[in-house]
Design a protein around this nucleic acid. Sequence first.
DNA 1: ATGGATACTGACCAGTCAGTCAATACGGCT
DNA 2: AGCCGTATTGACTGACTGGTCAGTATCCAT
Lengths: 202, 202
Amino acid sequence: MRTRRPADRASEIARAALDLFVTRGFAATKLEDVAKAAAVSKGLPYVYFKNKEELFKAVITEAIGGPLADASDMVDHFDGSSEDLLRGLVAGFRAFEESPAGGVVKLILAEAGNFPDVARFFCAQFDRRGRDLFIRALQRGVHRREFRTIEDIEATAIIIAQPLAMFSVWKRSLAPYDPTTLLDGDRFYTAYLDFLFKGLRP
Amino acid sequence: MRTRRPADRASEIARAALDLFVTRGFAATKLEDVAKAAAVSKGLPYVYFKNKEELFKAVITEAIGGPLADASDMVDHFDGSSEDLLRGLVAGFRAFEESPAGGVVKLILAEAGNFPDVARFFCAQFDRRGRDLFIRALQRGVHRREFRTIEDIEATAIIIAQPLAMFSVWKRSLAPYDPTTLLDGDRFYTAYLDFLFKGLRP
DNA sequence: ATGGATACTGACCAGTCAGTCAATACGGCT
DNA sequence: AGCCGTATTGACTGACTGGTCAGTATCCAT
């Protein structure tokens, strides 16, 4: 048996690509560097991915494929308080965001204009479904009188989700260059949940 | 007198560049396209900007130069309620965000990794100072007993600012590809202010 | 051991684009 | 009109990179 199988190679290349795409941007990343980072030769990525664009799509879809189903299950079957449900959703997002796949958020936002079909796919699979989770959690809380009544639930769900996405982007872009704030994950999520519940309680 | 003066050309080129950088990304934008969009020849940008990177920096600094001073004045001299002050800050951001210069937020976040010095400049000039405005507004409100006490003012200021930045990015990236939500500015800012004050009142 | 299949390599090609520069158009001045 | 200086052009070049492919290495079955 060989030490490395093709499946490993494909995902090694995809991981290296995600990493470089996130830090440098899609256009500024050379496939040769991807190959180097994955410790393979320049030609090998083309064996597993038809071209650079296909690699991009594969990276995105692979990264967001898994974690959403778990979250959806959680909302469906949760039986604690709605505050705890929101806490659970946020914890789920944090786990995703702090994994290597977390970088896709920044990547997608930066490259949506150049890859309309990837953007549409991401909207349908992640943006929309993710937002629905928050909408359902809010509705549940309002219905059970744990939260105050909310004028515009859909817009509020988006507003609630935005700091999460923004923090993910910020961590990977400006944060390394900002010497003044040392806002780490713990501090951010604590303040976020605090503010969130202050705004939602009756 | 000539119909067009050099100063016009420089800012025409900068405007066209900002537009294309925002929609396509820096690396994916050809200077030839910038020239075409500005209705000049390929060589002219190099008369006014040493190279592509200098053009990038000029675009950024020009775009964020103006609007922050006004906001700072507002916080210093405001004499209404702190809620109205926050409303004023948000309105100021909205005006900036909906101007052509609004695209820099997305641009910076996407390209920070490739232009560390621009990133640092932006952090110092915009990110940090902008955040300070919110911090001061929050402190003012707490001090005057218009807002509840806040555990971590600095983190809360960031969290408050994040939806604004994110909405700006989202509008220019995913929104055009998301057929399900029609979240326009009015609806977003209404829900945002609503949620904001629900979370801040004593 | 030999043949063949699969995994992988890296030199090479063709297209692209940042950046240059000799030539030109134009406006003002005398 | 004729000159001068400034603004502008666009063909060109050199470097770089996406993508190809002929060839090599490695393993397995017979």
